[in-house]
Design a protein around this nucleic acid. Structure first.
Lengths: 158, 158
DNA sequence: CTGATATTGAGATGCAGTATCAATATAAGA
DNA sequence: TCTTATATTGATACTGCATCTCAATATCAG
């Protein structure tokens, strides 16, 4: 537990504002813009995506601020970094959502979320066996989603 | 299966030379230097480590060649990229070694290898459930190895 | 040995992310 | 509301890692 603050609402935006207050940070327009972006974004947007899109709305936003805010959101548990498998990565909104892992389509970057208690339990045991103290983990399966495997099959048949 | 070639030996160096021949590539000194480095390296070396160390031995090696060769080794199944969890990464020799996943110490970068058949099986089933065709996966647990958790405890007690 | 050609290294370039710092926005207090 | 201390910002320069370019070189088949 890194920061302690009472949760007065389940509205992510309100909780975020409260977090800022608790940490003595200011509720700037830019911070709220980035949060809103993640809240409304369906796909997993890269920092560059976010910067580009927010620039369109409001020219008065800088690349550095986007990165700074993404880090803030990440370390406060509001956002999670997702690898695309090729070095690039995107962010997803996380607050209030249970832990999950990912299957990532290498063709279209679609992300399927999964969670399996047995895997989590075994992981924990394995760590204990090796006297390892886990902090976090990443379990990513890369491959092709249903749609893309169908396309690929058609493509290679010719 | 991307490239088909008969295995005439279990000596990685011979198999690598055969792979080069099969692909119509030349067995250059540089390619063999990088392979040797990985074969003899105990730790997981970063591309920059490898470049630096090989430069000492033989000034006639370029950064680009190290990267090119690492990619070749990776896509041929001779090497695997391991994330250190902070954006940096290293390579480990892979050929002929069974699949395994990693626990990575965020303090000292020590890597503990693990494999669990149940996890692998569940993964496969989960993919099927989502009609997802897996190509590869990455299961990394980040945390502290035994030694580093002891050090950390001592450090925070004072 | 010779020649066709794959490979190379140096250096330019690309790209994601970070550091710097003067200008600005925020929020608390008067 | 106005004032003021200060956190935050954006532009820009910079870093680190990786890739591209291309003339020079090494490899290997004949």
């Amino acid at each position: 537990m890194q920061y302690q603050y009472k949760i007065v609402s389940s509205d992510p935006k309100l909780v975020f504002l409260q977090l800022l207050e608790t940490k003595g940070l200011k509720a700037t327009k830019q911070r709220q813009l980035v949060l809103d972006y993640l809240l409304n974004s369906k796909k997993h947007a890269s920092p560059e995506d976010i910067y580009r899109d927010l620039c369109k709305k409001d020219r008065s936003i800088g690349r550095a601020t986007v990165f700074r805010t993404l880090h803030l959101l990440e370390e406060s548990g509001f956002a999670e970094k997702i690898s695309f498998g090729d070095g690039r990565h995107g962010y997803e909104f996380k607050f209030g959502r249970p832990h999950h892992d990912h299957m990532i389509c290498v063709e279209c970057n679609t992300v399927i979320e999964f969670i399996n208690d047995t895997i989590e339990r075994i992981q924990h045991k394995l760590a204990q066996t090796h006297k390892f103290s886990p902090l976090w983990h990443r379990h990513e399966i890369f491959g092709r989603c249903h749609e893309c495997s169908l396309k690929k099959d058609l493509g290679t048949k010719s």
